[in-house]
Amino acid sequence: MGPPKEGSRLRKPIPPFQAFLDAHRTAVYRFLMVSVGPNEADECFQETFLSALRAYPRLRDGSNLRGWVLAIATRKAIDAARARNRRALPVADPADEAPAALAVEAADPPDDDLWKAVAGLPVRQRMAVVHRFVLDESYAEIGAAMGSTEEAARANVYQALKKLREVEPR
């Protein structure tokens, strides 16, 4: 046998869906809680994992399932933010960068300044912050999950932190 040849891709088998769900459910939930807000997190969670389940038999490699499912969750979060913007602004076709405020209700989530500040960020910046600081991902991983590049992810996080510093009185 010997070591695998250079350039040969080692495929990891696809685990039973339940094992995949158990391994990544918390990361996906954390991501959605901040990205779409606690009120829509459950619905987006079901949509994310149903999409994953639909595509699951076609997967050929199980080596980056976390990145794969977070990319699906990211698309669902962007869709949810767009839908919310359409409801709020009947005129325009809002671009991704349009501010998408979270529909925050009284009891849940914590009614504090940090939450409000993050909720006020444009959707891609908010998601980049969640990927970076809540899920501890590298910029390369964030770029992949958000369907953009490492540089764009870095820029999104930079812009977000700048805004957060302006908002927060320290």
Binding site: L21, D22, R25, T26, Y29, M33, A41, D42, F49
Partner: peptide
């Protein structure tokens, strides 16, 4: 979030 994720799953 862990608890809510478990319930949702």
């Amino acid at each position: 979030a862990e608890r809510k994720a478990r319930v949702a799953a």
